[in-house]
Design a protein around this nucleic acid. Sequence first.
RNA 1: GGGACCGUAGCUCAGUUUGGUCCAGAGCAUUCGGUUGUGAUCCGAAAGGUCGAGGGUUCGAUUCCCUCCGGUCCCCCCA
Length: 430
Amino acid sequence: MLPAGTEGASMPASPAWQHIEDVVRKVMRRYGFEEIRTPALEPTALVARGIGQATDIVQKEMFTFEQGDAGYVLRPEVTAPVMRAYLQHHLGQRGGVQKLFYVGPCFRAEKPQKGRFRQFHQFGSETIGAADARADAETVALMADVYREFGLRQTRLRLNSLGSPPDRKRYRQALTDYFAPYENELSETSRRRLRQNPLRLLDTKIEHEQRLLEDAPRLLDFVDDGSRAHYDEVKGWLDHLEIPFEEDPLLVRGLDYYTRTAFELESGALGAQSALAGGGRYDLLAEALGADEPVPAVGFAAGIERLFLALEAAGYDFPPDPAADVFLAAIGEEAERFVFEKARALRRAGLSAETDLMGRSLKAQMREANRSGAPHAVIIGGNELEAGRASVKHMATGEQTEVAFDGLTAFLLEQRAGGQPAEAEAAQDT
RNA sequence: GGGACCGUAGCUCAGUUUGGUCCAGAGCAUUCGGUUGUGAUCCGAAAGGUCGAGGGUUCGAUUCCCUCCGGUCCCCCCA
């Protein structure tokens, strides 16, 4: 039995899935980001320090286990691991800003539902070493361009500034004070949040509480001048790039390492889990992981499964499954030996060639040839072996011609290069 | 962690209401065949399921009850 919420991860890698990754990598490279691969396994302490003890992820969503004295965790996200790699391998010494991206699996021990899995896949970018607001804007632009590349326009980009930890501490207090008189009107979960993590109150879905929030203090009013100036700059650069966004004073993120800029991209077509991607600045993460000095950084993370859902909802045209160039059918043992070797020769010439591996009838082989999507089937039996010429059937038209064994590779290469069916006759003379 | 619904062939599902020869079925997919060596169509046949698992009630359980496992969706939270 598979662990819950890991279903899709064990299916054969579909062309659609690979297509998504291809597009992601393409856009990432346009922006000059390098791919980095970090282990799926990380020390529990790294994740706990990086993401924050008080977060849901660390408190209840990690797959952890002990090995000797050490505690490990299947990574629930990739930003902390990338920062660990950056520090451990002194990537900053390479000079300049480090622009890294990743694509890979993450794990969270949540109850699975639509758009949420225990093993899921994220891609994202991390721009490490840049405090400039343009780094924030570039991250947002990169994220937006990935979705734009897929033609997804029904998305909503929300933006906010979280300021610095002292700012948030003062804001937390103000929020607590504001809600104190209303405590009896709050739901049980909201009362719990008020004590444990007041910022979470901001995304309550209870109408009454939302009305209370309208007059509640705003995080942005507690943000220090530096953060405010930075926020204004980020908005300026986004305007400059003509990237539409909404300011959302209620936007907070679930991980402790965020500072200043926070953003989230939503889709309307995803059901309960509408967040496609999110990110922000995390200038304090490096120090939390043991760095001697602050390392400014900003990044985003996106869910591939959710992108997939959004694409399906939008009726996205995935590229068709790649078809073989040719299917080789054999009749009789001698022909089977010939075909098996010929297929390898074609493959070494760069063609995608398929053959029967079950000793099936010609009829069954032709069915298989049809299924393979190969434009041509090559039939070789006693007659062909005697004549030294293969029967080549053009599957779409049903027309069949003969091609000398010696010229078969060249013929098929030419066909793949865009030769028309009509040229088949011409080619058979070569 | 809490809630709702669901588990019958590889896939999509019927059958369970009122337990017993319409209870083990259909479509698609698969394999083979429709005379000697030709695919997507058509026709025919075959193969394929301990009816999620275990226990209970009963003369008898896919059907009723309990437990467990799994799935889906929702709350929480997030990608």
